Simulated assay, not measured.
Amino acid sequence: MTASDAPAFCVHCGQRAPGGADHPACHNPRTALEPPRYCTFCARRLVVQVSPLGWTARCSRHGETASG
């Protein structure tokens, strides 16, 4: 992974976030339980599927992520 591949976008709003994942404006207890909505690498909308056991989120360019 190069510096250009480092996470740079908020997973909740898609805006630039230094350090990636989320930024202070979107970081609250409610969003901690929500699945990501935007790819942290390219800010594209994710295809999210939620089930009783967790969630999966897929970016058309960067692949799939699943809950833990």
Rank of each mutant, 00 (worst) to 15 (best):
M1D: 14
M1Q: 12
A3S: 15
A3H: 14
A3I: 14
S4W: 11
S4N: 13
S4C: 11
D5G: 08
D5I: 05
A6M: 14
P7E: 08
A8F: 01
A8T: 03
A8H: 02
F9D: 00
F9V: 03
F9S: 00
F9Q: 01
C10W: 01
C10E: 04
C10V: 06
V11F: 05
H12N: 02
C13H: 03
C13L: 02
G14V: 03
Q15K: 11
R16C: 05
R16T: 10
R16L: 12
P18D: 15
G19D: 09
G20S: 09
G20H: 06
A21F: 14
A21W: 13
A21Q: 15
A21I: 15
D22Q: 04
D22G: 00
H23W: 07
H23Q: 09
H23G: 06
P24N: 02
A25F: 10
H27S: 08
H27V: 04
N28D: 13
N28L: 10
N28M: 09
P29F: 02
R30H: 12
R30G: 06
R30V: 09
R30Y: 08
R30P: 00
T31E: 11
A32K: 12
L33I: 13
L33W: 10
L33F: 13
L33A: 15
L33H: 13
P35C: 07
P36G: 07
P36K: 01
P36I: 05
Y38K: 07
Y38A: 05
Y38L: 07
C39K: 00
C39I: 03
C39V: 05
T40N: 11
T40L: 13
F41G: 00
L46N: 00
V47T: 13
V47W: 11
V47G: 09
V48C: 03
V50M: 01
V50W: 00
P52G: 03
P52Q: 00
G54S: 02
G54K: 02
T56C: 07
A57P: 00
R58C: 08
R58P: 00
C59I: 07
S60V: 14
R61Q: 06
R61L: 08
G63D: 13
G63C: 13
A66L: 11
S67N: 09
S67E: 05
G68F: 12
G68I: 12
